[in-house]
């Protein structure tokens, strides 16, 4: 089994951090092979940023793929640019606070979550990636909630004040992901 995931959005939305947290949790809590590969070049806040995560039982060959099983879209330009990469039957996660365009495919599952709105409601726009990670784990269940949260808090919880915020953000995402799965 090999699962290819892409996360894409604006620089500053924590796209890389979301990919890193997910892949780091796989490394920490399983014996599976996993790679994280960032786009690199003239990346900057407000520009586009994306990363690939590959999780596999066998050694990972290419850390990036032309087609992905899961596509996480945080902004409008990324939807247009990367929707074609999603395999038929794949899962599309959308930050629908920002992404208002209709999705031009009916052969994929679509999970919408207003992660920017929720992050503002929680008082810190930076946690939108942790919310989306919650949505992703809640929907796919590829890792247990506890193991994912342990890595999030291990990596992002160095300031005590941020511990609760990240916990809450992850929990809010989980709710949305699970509810979407239940439908």
């Amino acid at each position: 089994m090999e699962r290819n995931i892409m996360v894409a959005g604006f620089g500053g939305q924590g796209v890389m951090v979301m990919g890193k947290l997910l892949s780091n949790a796989v490394c920490d809590s399983t014996t599976q092979n996993v790679t994280f590969f960032p786009s690199y070049g003239a990346e900057q806040r407000g520009g586009t940023a994306n990363c690939y995560v590959v999780i596999s039982d066998e050694p990972v060959g290419s850390p990036m793929s032309d087609t992905v099983d899961d596509l996480v879209i945080m902004n409008g330009p990324s939807l247009n640019k990367f929707l074609g990469k999603l395999k038929p039957g794949g899962i599309l996660f959308i930050n629908n606070t920002i992404v208002k365009d209709a999705v031009s495919r009916d052969d994929v599952a679509i999970v919408k979550a207003p992660v920017t709105d929720i992050s503002l409601e929680l008082g810190n726009p930076k946690v939108l990636n942790v919310i989306m990670l919650g949505v992703y784990i809640g929907y796919t269940g590829i890792l247990s909630e506890e193991l994912m949260l342990a890595t999030i808090l291990g990596q992002l919880g160095k300031k005590a004040s941020l511990l609760e915020l990240n916990k809450t953000a992850f929990a809010r995402g989980l709710e949305i992901g699970k509810a979407a799965k239940g439908k």
Partner: peptide, 10 residues
């Protein structure tokens, strides 16, 4: 190469 420099894996 650039992949091996930038990739993160266990």
């Amino acid at each position: 190469d650039g992949v091996l420099g930038a990739i993160i894996e266990p």
